[in-house]
Amino acid sequence: MALLDVQNLTVEFPTRRGVLRALDGVSFSIEAGEVLGVVGESGAGKSLTGAAIIGLLEPPGRIAGGRILLEGSRIDDLSQSQLRRIRGRRIGAIFQDPLTTLNPLYSIGRQLIETIRTHLKLSEADARKRAVRWLEEVGIPAAAQRIDAYPHEFSGGQRQRVVIALALCAEPALVIADEPTTALDVSIQAQIIALLKRLARDHGTSVMLITHDMGVIAETADRVAVMYAGRIAEIGPVAEIVRTPAHPYTLGLMGSIPSIEHRVERLAQIDGAMPRLTAIPQGCAFNPRCPRVFARCRIERPDLLPAGATEAACWLHDATIRPLRAAHG
């Protein structure tokens, strides 16, 4: 049984001009101890997927369909107070900007202790010991002294370490890291990713790593889900996705990563832009930009189909009716 199983998740935003479907039939699972990378452009629905899982969709956004199972039991239909007990305790979250995710008026110790004591029956003193241990574990030097310091007394990288400690201090089985390195210095990014990797391994924590940085994914994730316009375009083991992408969108994404080995004059780019939620085309959402588009893509929407080692939502991989390659070669 997978730790987290997301089935056909649909998230909608009712607006004055009608209902916007921001996530449309997203399915994936995360095994215990696994790191799943989620990549895609801004607005593809990566963060929204994370927010939906922990029940923190911004109103008026709501889960309109599908199921979310944590260790086999549904969590998408729980009340807010039941969800609260899951957040932090069973599913942790790490946000993008460490400069704004810590409460500036409380010392980091107070924030850690409060989080620990919310979820675990510990005395103030024991919670404090645990907080110091976590600060040491995330690499804050002189943790016992610095525990009473305030967020502004830490650098950006250290603050993200504190955020990680806060997310993990109640030992959740899964942590959703939403762009944990985007706001950081390039030199710090690698450290934070290495830390996250090490902690996940040491504590057996599964990670859902949301980012648009393929480099981070390639280095960290076991499997990757590529999202496009609120759907999963391709999902599979990281090596296969990087080496032999099956979906034309993934292929385009890989082509746009600069390589040290091969000098190129110009980076490849995918023409056009991701459609807005109000104007998602019929059929495959990627069809207006796809170099290998054919008639069926404009009419019928592809589900995830087996494509070698990965699964891709692309009619090119329809085993029953193979399209004639010659027709659009």
Binding site: R84, R85, G88, L102, T115, T118, A170
Partner: peptide
């Protein structure tokens, strides 16, 4: 703000988030 969202994501009680943080 983000720190309130993060406080929610850590599962702190509603009371503590609203009347404390």
């Amino acid at each position: 703000t983000d720190y309130i969202k993060f406080a929610r994501a850590r599962g702190l009680t509603d009371r503590s988030i609203k009347f404390g943080h």
